[in-house]
Amino acid sequence: MAAVRSLSKFFSLRSFSTTTKRAYADQMSFTFAAGNQVYYEAKSVKQVDVPSFSGSFGILPAHVPTLAVLKPGVVSVYEDSGNVNKIFVSSGTVTINDDSSVQILAEEAHPVANIDVGTARDILSKAQSELSSATNDQARAEAEIAIEVGEALVKAAE
């Protein structure tokens, strides 16, 4: 029990910070979380470019509130320090709220540098052959998605 208690003390000291800090209007509170990793949590950044179904768009502080659904592609984060962080997202959602908080939630996201160009090309060509051999609507739709992802992967990795 003593061990458990000391554990609990340890964790409460480290305290989960779950509340997103309220940002000033001219500052973006940017959260970027994927199923595999959290990249940003309520951080202030200059600009974020996202690929979405309604076209790619850039998000600056005080962007008009909107919702969007992600398309496979590269999210570019322009950090306050001047760094540009390029992360490939598979899919997910973008939420821009009226308090200038921005959330990108992705199923899977990895830095572009971690993508293997050769494998990406293999995935694309495999998807293309799957499309030609697809026999029903669903298989065709799945192959089309795979091609879309494959193209985005190759484009990002090159």
């Binding site: 199923g35 598979s90 899919s91 899977e108 971690n114 293997d116 995935i123 609507d137 998605i145």
Partner: peptide, 26 residues
């Protein structure tokens, strides 16, 4: 979109995309 017409939803779309992204890693 074509995939929604074929009876898929965005979750299916997302799963396929995430699976391929994982396969394309180094």
């Amino acid at each position: 979109t074509a995939w929604r017409q074929a009876g898929l939803n965005y979750i299916n779309y997302s799963n396929i995309a995430a699976k391929l992204l994982r396969q394309a890693l180094k």
